[in-house]
Design a binder for these strands. Structure first.
Ligand code: FES
Ligand code: FES
Lengths: 154, 154
DNA sequence: CCGATACCCGAGTAAATCACTCAGGTTTTA
DNA sequence: TAAAACCTGAGTGATTTACTCGGGTATCGG
């Protein structure tokens, strides 16, 4: 029962977007630097997120990504599903959905549903509001701002 | 977010043991046939279950396995953990447990704990009592009994 | 005491999945 | 027109999964 990095990164990236929503759109280079995620991997990931309608994009210089909906409208489950992270504990095989299920089939589908409900009840806004996320986010932005003089002095 | 077959099989096998507890000990050949799980794989699996103290074994002919505790004392979480199914959504890497966690680290450990609590609240007895498990189990036993005449006629 | 039954154990392996990377595009702004 | 940024398909090394194999060793019934 574990998550792939794709799912984990997707949530991190979406939180980054939500935290910087007031700026307008956020470039993946920024996200990549702040969250230490490979840029190429992020691009691949954001294709999925866009296809699922969770983010909008603006092309060209000064472009970037932004949330397609309010952060209260996006749930943890939405993000995970968009990142190909299926919330299904049952076996995916052909025998599974058929008329001859195994002894535990019902158990897993039941559990999966309950987990999904739970994850769907947590909005991106809920996550972003949390105390430790806030402090960590400001830390990230401070180091970001700290870099600006260096860039100007060039 | 998915389960490995090891975890899934472990729960199935433990349920089989619980369902046939009255008989005494159950051989893995029986479990293998009833639940359609490779015998060799089951043996490997039961090594883990035994090491974790969930089952006891009796060697030799007429031997087999039996639950080491009452089915109310064994939780779903116990079984999954025994089958090397770690319930941890955070990244397992070295950076993870250290002093510089990512933006979502707290979220995942939190979630993992809640999932664990939930899985730990379900006992093997709870699972076995469920309506569809009961009917499926009797079906398995009927076909089992149905085979006996064939064996005698040999 | 012999052979069948069944647990015990370490190691190996094909297939699948993961976690990326690469090499190019195209669109927009300054 | 150059740079910034999004967009896309394809490829790949490493890891994990889901087993199998080939041997043991203990116990029982006859
Ligand atoms: S979980 Fe798929 S049939 Fe058992
Ligand atoms: S989950 Fe491991 S540091 Fe983020």
């Amino acid at each position: 029962m574990k998550l792939t990095t794709k799912g984990r990164y997707a949530v991190t990236a979406m939180m980054d977007l939500a935290l910087h929503a007031k700026i307008g759109c956020v470039s993946l280079v920024d996200v990549s630097e702040r969250q230490n995620i490979s840029l190429a991997y992020l691009e691949q990931l954001f294709r999925s997120l866009k296809k699922s309608g969770l983010v909008n994009s603006i092309r060209g210089a000064k472009g970037g990504y932004m949330l397609a909906k309010g952060d209260k409208e996006i749930s943890l489950a939405d993000i995970l599903v968009a990142a190909d992270e299926q919330i299904n504990l049952a076996c995916g095989g052909s025998a599974c959905s058929e008329n001859t299920p195994c002894l535990t089939h019902g158990l897993w589908t039941n559990l999966s549903n309950q987990f999904y409900e739970f994850l769907d009840s947590k909005s991106l806004n809920d996550l972003v509001k949390s105390r430790d996320v806030q402090t960590m986010a400001t830390m990230q932005d401070v180091t970001q701002i700290g870099n600006i003089p260096v860039q100007i002095s060039k």
